[in-house]
């Protein structure tokens, strides 16, 4: 682009009003201004796809939703909310969700950071290894679930076969504890690479002179890692953690397609209960109350995320 090299000195030939414009960039504008104009179409679109559904969801949560012949709302006051707050099954689901979240995100962070540290030590061939490591992220979650079922099938599954070979004869998806572990591991398989990717970017950004100084001061590898490297990439790790956290409540395809919440509700995290409530029992009003609870959790996490970006000057 030739324009990119244009110098402000070219302004000699400019019309006076344009020079005037450049001198007063903060002059109050009428209307939206150019940035506002560019934002308008997307904002209008998003309002339709986000604010209207949000208001609808609030309306639904205070109603009984009738689906016969279109859709109609019947005012029910706080019924759905009272039920949501007292439903022991829902609270069990929240507990399952928290456990699922702690296990998956915890393992993903632990393994993801470990692999990133290992990968960071590799100099040649890192690109290739990283490419291979990243593959699971692009696999549709529903395929991850189906593939998982194929691998742990009690009769012909590759992994169950290997487990049998070492004396463990189980049907992983057949009993509550093993099913929970199995679906959690499928999530770990898919999303650990994201943590590795983000952590690796953080590691590559650590100032080499700091590391040299640490080495000169006689700091060992482990001490350097825990006292210098991790503190200096703590923001990057926090970003990875927050993104995974928000997505952990977002995606539930893997569980839907493998256990659909079973056996004995062992894997029924909140979004699955919402789907069941809405699209199997067609109690959309109650489901809406559950949905708003989930939304509140996500918004709280998004708030932390944005605040972190602002404070650290990562955004804007």
């Amino acid at each position: 682009m030739t324009q990119t090299t244009a110098q402000p000195t070219g302004g000699q030939e400019l019309a006076p009003e344009r020079v005037q414009q450049m001198k007063q960039p903060r002059r109050p504008r009428r209307g939206l201004g150019f940035p506002g104009l560019l934002m308008a179409p997307a904002v209008i679109f998003m309002a339709g796809l986000s604010i209207i559904p949000f208001l609808t969801l609030i309306g639904m949560s205070f109603s009984r939703v009738r689906l016969l012949g279109g859709a109609a709302l019947e005012w029910r006051g706080l019924d759905n909310w009272a039920r949501a707050l007292t439903d022991p099954n829902l609270w069990t689901s929240w507990a399952t969700t928290v456990l699922y979240f702690v296990v998956t995100v915890g393992l993903e962070l632990l393994i993801g950071i470990g692999v990133a540290v290992a990968l960071h030590r590799v100099l040649r061939g890192r690109g290739l290894v990283l490419s291979l490591v990243l593959l699971p992220m692009f696999v549709a979650p529903v395929i991850v679930g189906l593939l998982g079922r194929y691998l742990v099938d009690p009769t012909f599954g590759l992994y169950t076969n290997w487990l049998q070979a070492v004396g463990i004869d189980i049907d992983p998806l057949g009993s509550p504890v093993t099913a929970f572990i199995a679906v959690a591991l499928m999530d770990v398989w898919e999303w650990t690479p994201l943590i590795t990717l983000i952590t690796l970017a953080g590691l590559s950004g650590v100032n080499p002179s700091v590391l040299e100084a640490a080495a000169l001061d006689g700091a060992g590898r482990t001490r350097t890692l825990f006292h210098i490297i991790f503190p200096s990439i703590s923001n990057v790790l926090l970003v990875a953690f927050l993104i995974r956290s928000m997505d952990a409540v977002r995606y539930f395809d893997i569980i839907t397609i493998t256990t659909n919440g079973g056996p004995a509700d062992a894997t029924k995290i909140v979004p699955l209960r919402l789907y069941e409530t809405a699209f199997r029992f067609f109690d959309l009003g109650y489901a809406a109350a559950i949905g708003l609870m989930m939304l509140a959790v996500t918004i709280a996490m998004a708030k932390v995320f944005v605040r972190l970006l602002d404070r650290k000057g990562l955004a804007q």
Binding site: M60, Y275, L292, M294
Partner: peptide, 12 residues
């Protein structure tokens, strides 16, 4: 909006 849980968006 990007982070909103899919289940909560699907309903309305």
């Amino acid at each position: 909006t990007r982070m909103a849980p899919i289940a909560a968006v699907v309903l309305p």
